[in-house]
Simulated scan of single mutants.
Amino acid sequence: MNKKGVLLVNLGSPDSPTPRDVKKYLDEFLMDPRVIDVPRWARILLVRGIILNTRPKQSAKAYAKIWWEEGSPLIVLSERLQKKVQEKLNVPVALAMRYGSMTLKKGLQELVDQGCTEIKTIPLYPQFAMATTETIDVKVDELVAAHFPQVKITRTPAFYHREDYKEALANSIAESLANADYEHILFSYHGVPERHIRKSDITNGNCKMNGKCCFKMGSPQHEFCYRHQCEITTVNMAKKLGLKNGTYSTTFQSRLGFDPWLQPYTDRTIERMGKAGIKKMAIVTPAFVSDCLETLEEIAMEGEEIFQEVGGEEFTVVPCLNDRDDFAQVLVNMVEEWRIVNVDKAIA
Rank of each mutant, 00 (worst) to 15 (best):
281 M>E: 13
345 K>V: 04
253 Q>L: 02
115 G>A: 12
190 H>K: 03
245 N>K: 12
10 N>A: 11
123 P>F: 02
336 E>Q: 15
242 G>A: 07
213 C>L: 11
130 M>N: 05
179 N>C: 00
207 C>E: 09
346 A>L: 13
26 L>A: 06
131 A>I: 01
180 A>H: 05
196 H>P: 08
257 G>P: 02
233 T>G: 06
124 L>Y: 04
248 Y>D: 08
309 E>H: 12
21 D>C: 06
14 P>K: 02
78 S>H: 07
266 T>V: 03
12 G>F: 04
121 T>G: 10
192 V>T: 10
65 K>T: 06
320 C>N: 15
33 P>W: 12
334 M>N: 06
180 A>V: 05
112 V>Y: 14
208 K>V: 00
280 K>F: 04
42 A>L: 15
174 A>E: 15
1 M>W: 06
237 M>L: 13
313 E>C: 03
210 N>C: 15
283 I>P: 05
56 P>K: 02
15 D>V: 00
269 T>M: 12
212 K>V: 14
164 D>R: 03
11 L>M: 11
274 G>D: 13
240 K>E: 15
250 T>Q: 07
269 T>P: 02
190 H>F: 03
284 V>N: 10
227 R>T: 01
189 Y>L: 02
204 N>M: 08
37 D>G: 08
125 Y>Q: 00
285 T>K: 05
90 N>P: 00
236 N>Q: 13
267 D>E: 15
242 G>D: 10
189 Y>D: 06
104 L>D: 10
10 N>Y: 14
47 V>S: 07
268 R>S: 14
171 N>G: 07
223 E>S: 11
323 D>L: 02
303 G>C: 10
181 D>C: 07
85 V>H: 08
174 A>K: 15
